[in-house]
Design a protein around this nucleic acid. Structure first.
Length: 410
DNA sequence: TCTGGGGTCCTAGGACCC
DNA sequence: TCTGGGGTCCTAGGACCC
């Protein structure tokens, strides 16, 4: 039998912002951007949640519900920095730590009793050390499976511990709404309600074959989850089995929809530079390049193209993306969002690109230099999109406010 | 309500091959 | 002539998570 901890930081983004600006403490704070911008709430303080504000809610809606809230921009670098500290702290409790996202982790605590004592004692220590090391609160769920640990950490919030004693998993889960099961979202919830399933207990009582017939492979996984088992899906992998990314993407939503080709293509170029840079950081060469287009009415298409040899070079990515865009954009239709997605990593000789060796070397050096400049001066310091500079300058000249990223903050 | 951005996993159909 | 079956790759879309 194993013992898992699920550690979830409380209101992580908001709490980190409070460390940088203590005057925010106790106030309704909303992280995600300005209330008049297109976007959603990334995180809301407990004071803001009292007004009904929650993450994923449009900023404009949040403003209507809580106009006195303090709206702040997110700071990904700060969150990454604190996420590192969280990881280091957790490593003091178990060598088997897996960050499941920027603000939550699984610990395999099996066999650590001699070192840390029984689970509740270890959790108490963990709270204390986390506070000392990061000044942040967290909640801890403890169980024999990762799934149940995750569900119980949610119920332990804020700043608490919940231990589901071995053997009591099914009884613990039974009265909970099916929505509490990770992986059950709006759609699955509705489908389950349609057949009279509302609680996890309803799910556990059903015949597995019925669930499989009705919901396929997912139905079978649900049957296991309702009994607290990790079997199937993401919970099934070993903790600490570090794997690289499977895809790398960047996207951008315009504050105002646009059908202006130079603006669209310079944005795509910029997104390709961001993707290319991350590919190089990870030493990856992508074989599949995907464009994402969202129109004013929110209808969205994706169009992909795979190449025999992978690339990590901005201009090559951009060539593919531009072709995809030109072949698939319904000309004149205002665009709301653009995205560039890279996946399908090339192995071995697939990574050799078709540029001659010296040209290739030269490019690599140029890009490495650009990456260093960006490290020092920020993402917008360098633009390699030579093919677009004319357009860029032209736009800048006639209408600086329409450039992405150059919108004046008022 | 007027809907971000970065991911993962799954399904389903068609092409293609044996 | 009226039609197999399995495997793999590619593409498009969608649910879900934080």
């Amino acid at each position: 039998m194993r013992t898992y901890f699920h550690v979830d930081m409380d209101a992580f983004f908001v709490s980190v912002e409070e460390l940088y600006d203590p005057s925010l403490k106790g106030k309704p704070v909303i992280v995600g951007g300005r209330p008049d911008e297109r976007g959603v709430v990334s995180a809301a303080s407990y004071a803001a949640r009292k007004f009904g504000v929650h993450s994923a809610m449009p900023l404009r809606t949040a403003y209507k519900m809580c106009p006195q809230a303090i709206f702040v921009d997110g700071h990904p670098e700060r969150y990454r920095e604190y996420s590192e500290k969280v990881y280091e702290t957790l490593r003091g409790f178990s060598p088997l730590v897996e960050m499941a996202s920027i603000d939550e982790a699984y610990l395999d605590m099996t066999g650590t009793e001699r070192l840390h004592g029984p689970p509740l004692r270890a959790a108490h220590q963990l709270h204390q050390r986390m506070k000392e090391a990061t000044n942040l609160n967290c909640s801890v769920g403890i169980a024999t499976s990762r799934l149940v640990a995750k569900i119980s950490s949610d119920q332990a919030k804020p700043n608490g511990v919940l231990w589901v004693i071995p053997g009591s998993e099914v009884a613990y889960l039974a009265p909970l709404d099916v929505r509490k099961v990770p992986g059950v979202g709006k759609v699955t919830e509705k489908n389950l309600h349609a057949v009279g399933i509302r609680k996890v207990g309803d799910l556990a009582r059903l015949d597995e074959r019925f669930l499989e017939e009705r919901f396929g492979k997912w139905g079978l996984a649900l049957a296991g989850k309702s009994r607290g088992l990790d079997a199937g899906g993401w919970f099934d992998t070993e903790i600490g089995a570090e794997e690289g990314p499977k895809s790398i993407s960047h996207e951008h939503t315009f504050n105002e929809d646009t059908a202006d080709v130079p603006q669209i293509e310079s944005t795509l170029s910029h997104l390709c530079e961001m993707v290319g840079r991350r590919l190089r950081e990870h030493g990856l060469h992508a074989r599949t390049i995907q464009l994402k287009l969202r129109y004013s009415d929110f209808s969205t298409i994706t169009r992909a193209h795979s190449v025999a040899r992978g690339t990590q070079i901005d201009t090559e990515l951009f060539e593919e993306i531009r072709q995809l865009f030109r072949a698939n954009w319904r000309a004149g239709w205002p665009v709301r969002l653009l995205g560039v997605h890279a996946s399908g990593w090339a192995q071995g000789e697939e990574q050799m690109d078709l540029l001659g060796e010296d040209r290739h070397e030269k490019w690599k050096q140029t890009l490495a230099a650009a990456d260093r400049l960006r490290d020092r001066f920020g993402e917008k310091a360098v633009s390699l999109a030579a093919s677009l500079r004319g357009n860029f300058r032209e736009r800048t000249h006639e209408n600086p406010a329409s450039l992405p990223g150059k919108r004046p903050k008022k």
